[in-house]
């Protein structure tokens, strides 16, 4: 499953890069923005209020966002772990960080205390999301395009990308080395929107107390640095169902995936 996910991540990252280059060269009429689900949320207000999409967004963004809401209600943040090209890049940066700093976990260079981590996840991401949505809804333009690491990385120097945009991207990648998955955990607006849906998502990882030896391999493998070995069920809205924990677990049956019933 790890190999399959890696293939998914490589495929989506290469596809995004190719889409950006093709659009930049004039070989395609759809840009990487077309496939950003967050664009669907950015454009929703314009569609309701003005009966038209925000500039550079369209039906695909909206339909992908609606589909993503459905996916999150079942498979939590599986989009982030399996199909987000930016998530893949930041995960690879996190893996590089582990090697550079010789760490066994995704805690990174600094170990952020759990309370600070939780506060940052809520406050920072909410602030980023609210600012982007307010600005996009007020102006009808994707005003934060130049700051968006997905757009800067994959648009092949697209519209609104300036020299400082690469500086911001570089700074975020450097931050990702010091604090693995920092973008996804503390800044990503799509992650913020998906979090409450993911928290009630039906697919969950469960730990069998009888089979678990408490070796902690699952904790060390989790790119989101979640506590997998503690609870009997991973309830965190940050779980991307990447299944790295099940792959790392040496005891068959200790960790398994369960679909919770509607009433539970």
């Amino acid at each position: 499953m790890r190999r399959l996910r890696f293939l998914f991540q490589v495929a989506i990252t290469v596809a995004a890069a190719i889409a950006g280059v093709r659009f930049a060269l004039g070989w395609a009429r759809t840009s990487v923005e077309t496939y950003c689900p967050f664009g669907g949320l950015e454009t929703a207000y314009a569609l309701l209020a003005r009966k038209r999409f925000t500039c550079a967004t369209g039906e695909v963004n909206l339909a992908l966002f609606v589909a993503l809401v459905g996916l999150a209600l079942i498979a939590r943040k599986a989009f982030c772990g399996w199909a987000c090209p930016l998530g893949a890049v930041f995960e690879w940066t996190g893996r590089l960080s582990r090697r550079l700093f010789k760490r066994h976990t995704f805690q990174g260079f600094w170990s952020i205390p759990p309370r600070v981590d939780a506060a940052l996840k809520v406050l920072l991401r909410t602030a980023v999301t609210a600012t982007i949505l307010a600005a996009s809804w007020a102006t009808g333009e994707l005003v934060f395009r130049g700051y968006d690491p997905y757009y800067v990385l994959f648009s092949a120097h697209g519209h609104d990308v300036r020299t400082w945009s690469y500086g911001i991207l570089g700074a975020l990648l450097a931050l990702g080395l010091l604090v693995p998955m920092a973008w996804c955990k503390y800044l990503c607006p799509l992650g913020a929107v998906l979090w409450p849906l993911s928290a009630v998502g039906r697919l969950r990882l469960e730990r069998s107390e009888e089979a678990c030896t408490g070796c902690g391999a699952c904790d060390r493998a989790c790119p989101q640095a979640l506590d997998v070995s503690g609870p009997l069920q991973v309830r965190s809205g940050e779980c991307t169902l990447c299944l790295e924990c099940t792959g790392a677990c040496p005891t068959p049956g200790a960790l398994s995936l369960h679909l919770k019933g509607a009433g539970r």
Binding site: L4, R5, F8, P37, V60, A63, L64, F65, V66, A67, L68, G70, L71, I74, A75, A78, F79, W82, A83, L203, L241, L243, L257, L259
Partner: peptide
């Protein structure tokens, strides 16, 4: 089931 759901919802989108 996880990758299958991701592919299914991407196709639906």
């Amino acid at each position: 089931a996880v990758p299958a759901l991701v592919v299914l919802f991407a196709a639906l989108g």
